[in-house]
């Protein structure tokens, strides 16, 4: 069993390395690509992300045990060993296996919630910035309210009212409370783009609002949206982890990194490993996302094009 664990672990790492190397080779031909990899921690961040995505996708192969399997109810909290890579938790489940399956949940929720937020934020920002006047005034007041709202508190209330929340509902909730910043960013971008002459040219040619927004304005606003998206996924993941830690997010026994920390929390003194490793995983991924987001900002910032 343990040989297989090591093999898959090594395999995932090698695969992730290969992905980074290949990306690096391909992107080296373009100026933004070179700028991306010039960022000191971009490659490392990309590697960490590729590694976790690989094990999440290949979870059934990578995980030595099923995530819910209680190996030996009589002997929980076994320390890390050759057999149990990261030890077992207070319910006698293999922490490594749960971490692997938890990656699916945590990364998945983070990404999907960010997609929801980016879509809504972009739509609201684009409409607001393009039409201005009362449309803008109304939507931006809404955004002001949204930004002023204590997000955690609202989420807690909503989730507390909702026993055993479904994963899709959780994704929607996190996403729908997280688009306000994006919409402000997109609005600002659209406000400046709509004054550009190529937009005036499109309008002069008879293009309607939809065509102008989708073909001329948004493609030119893609860079900041992508960057804020990459930076936002980490936030969404932390939020999910927080909720799950409080027992209000992903319901047990399904593994998410947040509820794994919660499961091991009260046995911290005797079995540090069952909380520490999922905590480490979250920290690593969030840091990696920030590094990649930062490098993307360098890469996509057209003002650096001249340098």
């Amino acid at each position: 069993m343990s040989v297989w664990t090591w093999l898959t672990l090594g395999g995932a790492a090698v695969l992730a390395l290969a992905v980074v190397a290949e990306l690096r080779r391909r992107l080296q031909t373009s100026a933004p690509g070179r700028r991306f990899f010039r960022h000191p921690t971009a490659a490392l961040g990309l590697f960490v992300l590729a590694f976790f995505v690989t094990i999440a996708l290949a979870a059934p192969v990578v995980a030595p045990y099923p995530p819910y399997y209680q190996i030996d109810i009589g002997h929980p909290n076994r320390p890390p060993s050759a057999q149990f890579l990261l030890g077992t938790d207070p319910f006698s489940r293999d922490v490594w296996s749960r971490l692997v399956y938890g990656a699916r949940v945590s990364l998945g929720i983070g990404t999907l919630a960010m997609l929801v937020a980016a879509t809504v934020g972009t739509a609201v920002g684009a409409v607001s910035g393009y039409f201005r006047r009362w449309v803008d005034a109304t939507l931006m007041r809404l955004v002001d309210v949204g930004l002023a709202m204590p997000r955690i508190f609202v989420l807690l209330m909503a989730v507390a009212l909702w026993e055993h929340i479904a994963l899709w509902a959780l994704v929607l909730l996190i996403g729908l409370t997280g688009w306000f910043g994006t919409s402000r960013l997109v609005r600002a971008e659209v406000l400046s783009l709509r004054e550009r002459e190529f937009v005036a040219a499109a309008r002069a040619l008879g293009a309607g609002a939809g065509r102008v927004i989708f073909r001329h304005v948004l493609p030119n606003a893609a860079a900041p949206i992508i960057v804020s998206g990459a930076l936002g996924i980490g936030n969404m993941m932390l939020l999910e982890a927080g909720l799950s830690f409080l027992g209000l997010g992903v319901p047990s026994p399904a593994p998410s990194w947040g509820n794994m920390i919660a499961d091991g929390w009260h046995k911290m003194a005797v079995a540090w490993w069952s909380s520490t490793f999922p905590g480490l995983a979250i920290s690593l991924v969030v840091m990696a996302l920030n590094a990649v987001g930062d490098a993307l900002r360098d890469a996509l910032d057209p003002r650096r094009e001249a340098a």
Partner: peptide
């Protein structure tokens, strides 16, 4: 209309073909 700024008046994300095809489509 033809604009003053030949740098700002063309959409940087479109090819010349796309820019010329658009009015024909509209």
């Amino acid at each position: 209309i033809v604009f003053q700024d030949p740098y700002g008046s063309l959409n940087p994300r479109m090819t010349v073909r796309q820019m010329l095809a658009e009015p024909l489509a509209i």
